[in-house]
Design a protein around this nucleic acid. Sequence first.
DNA 1: TCCTTGACTTGGACAAAGTCCATTGTAGGA
DNA 2: TCCTACAATGGACTTTGTCCAAGTCAAGGA
Lengths: 138, 138
Amino acid sequence: MSDLLERLRGRGWRMTAQRRVVAEVLDGDHVHLTADEVHARAVEKLPEISRATVYNTLGELVSLGEVLEVSTDRRAKRYDPNAHRPHQHLVCARCGAIRDVHPVGNPLADLPDTERFGFTISDVEVTYRGTCPNCAAG
Amino acid sequence: MSDLLERLRGRGWRMTAQRRVVAEVLDGDHVHLTADEVHARAVEKLPEISRATVYNTLGELVSLGEVLEVSTDRRAKRYDPNAHRPHQHLVCARCGAIRDVHPVGNPLADLPDTERFGFTISDVEVTYRGTCPNCAAG
DNA sequence: TCCTTGACTTGGACAAAGTCCATTGTAGGA
DNA sequence: TCCTACAATGGACTTTGTCCAAGTCAAGGA
């Protein structure tokens, strides 16, 4: 993650305590926090940080391509620091757990020309839904 | 669509003017209206219909499997009366136009066992994003 | 080290989408 | 026709997120 901080500094980001804390919260694998969750964890490290700043910072990280926005349900957006390797998402319909997954092949190849209606397609998003082992056991 | 009304009556739905109007609005191919759009069109036919009733009715149609909820963007949910043939969605990133599309093959086959983390997968949702011919020309 | 400046942060107001609930109305059966 | 359970209504409320004016501060220069 200090990698990230370095890259951001290199891009002319002004380094503030708030931005550092948000970047630290978004560290790890299979991390998919909502903005409010990021805020809650940031507050533990920096009690005065405001919601607006968390939203601003997340938005900047997304524009810079350092974090991905994920919408696996129609509730809050989630922020995924795994922006460096393309992947899709597997979601537990019961508990909401999210895993990054890597399907083989190119999903775009499955859409025939006759089904493209003249669109220029630039991106495919796949969400697998099911029940995670935990919920299946419970 | 009178098919739909018949089916609903058969399932013990109490038929009201409001429900009939909502069902009528949701008729056709490539229809992907938001709840507010459904309400706006319903009001033209039945001026006193309330927003809450539109939400209730849409929710019921979804539970009954007669209409699908689609979340192609982070804004309002859209309601898709094409619930009888499985399909995916193609979305214009510029203007938001949505088309139903039918990819070949089973997208589930592309996810190796090692990438399933013990989940039992029941559903795959694919969203293709790009630029529609109209927006590309403009 | 201290100043300056423009970028950053803050809190609160605001907005969009949707839910909830008490009250009122009505479809459909007896 | 009358009853009654189910449905509709509208307004308050919630969640998620955006916007803004005012205050604060990081970082480069003197």
